[in-house]
Structures are given as C-alpha cells and as structure tokens.
Amino acid sequence: MQEFICQTSANPSLFSAEGFVGLIFLVTIGLIVAGALVATCARRLVRSVAGLALCFTGVAGMYYFLLAPFVAMMQMLIYVGAVAILIAFAIMMATPEEGDLPGRRISALAGPLGFATGALLFAALTVLAIRTPWQVFPREGSADMKHIGTVLLTSHSMVFELISIVLLIAIIGALVLARRGRN
C-alpha cells in the first residue's frame, strides 16, 4: 500500500490499482467532510449522531491510509461502536421530543461569528500546511500491535499510566453518578 500512496500524485488512470486507491482516499475525505456537515447542520439530533458516526468512519479510513490499521480498527470499535452509540443513548434519555430545541435565544451574531472563527482557523491551518516543508521521515518500527505494546510499556509508559488514571476516574465518576439515583 505504501507504494500506491506514493504514486497517487503521478496522475494515474482510475482503473489502475493506484487510481482506485486514490479514489478511495477521496471517498474517505468526502465521508469526513459530509459526516461533519451532517453532524453540525442537521436539525434532528439523531441525524447529527449518524453524521458523527460517518465522520468517525472516515477518520478510521484516514488512519488506515496512514498505515495504522490498528488505530483505524480501534477508531471504529471505540468511536463508532461505543462513543456514537452512547451519545445516541444520551439523546434518547435527554430529549423526549424531536425537533427544534426550545428556549435560549441565540444572538444574531452567533452565526457569522462562528463562521468567521471557523474560516479563520481553516485559513490558518491551510497556510500552515502549505508553508511547512513536509519531509518524509523513515518509519520507526511498524504500526503493528506488538510494536505498539512494546512501546506503550517501555518508552511511552507515562501515556499508559495516564490512560489508566483517566479510565479509573471515569469508572469512579460513573459509579458516583449511578449511585446517587438510588436510596
């Protein structure tokens, strides 16, 4: 796959393997953008969640293109399979009725300001991306699980510990919240 990606810039035909991979790459980007648009613009919350799941799927595809299949699978398993579904659950519990959210008047400036912020961020990132001299680093080890495991328990063990603490806090928090309902 490595060589496919490197050759995509050489303007290959759509029916060659490289062209097809390029097409899939574009589809992945399309998924991310479309998912993000649906997630932000949809009026119904369920559609937003579906858009979010779509966006996550696209991001998983992106990871796959970055030669990190393990991260891609984890993205699917955790973000699509758990996070999106938990958000959907939360919505199910929170809003009995679909449709427009009542109350809270939104200022007329909110839309333009939000758009301006987004555009500014986009412009800044684009400039940064174009200005940066991208250089291809030689790959350090592989993205396979053995390597990830070794790295997590040796040179990056701090990350591992921190994740454990975050998870522990999350579990305790969930228990506290769930216990409060009971008498």
Partner: peptide, 18 residues
Amino acid sequence: AVELSVLMLFALASIGMI
C-alpha cells in the same frame, strides 16, 4: 489476509449496532 482480522470483525460488528 488482514493482519488484524479479529479486531476488524468486531469493528464491523459495531456498524451493525449503529
């Protein structure tokens, strides 16, 4: 032959859930 086929099956199953 996917290297992470076990994981892939579970990742796909989560789409079924959605």
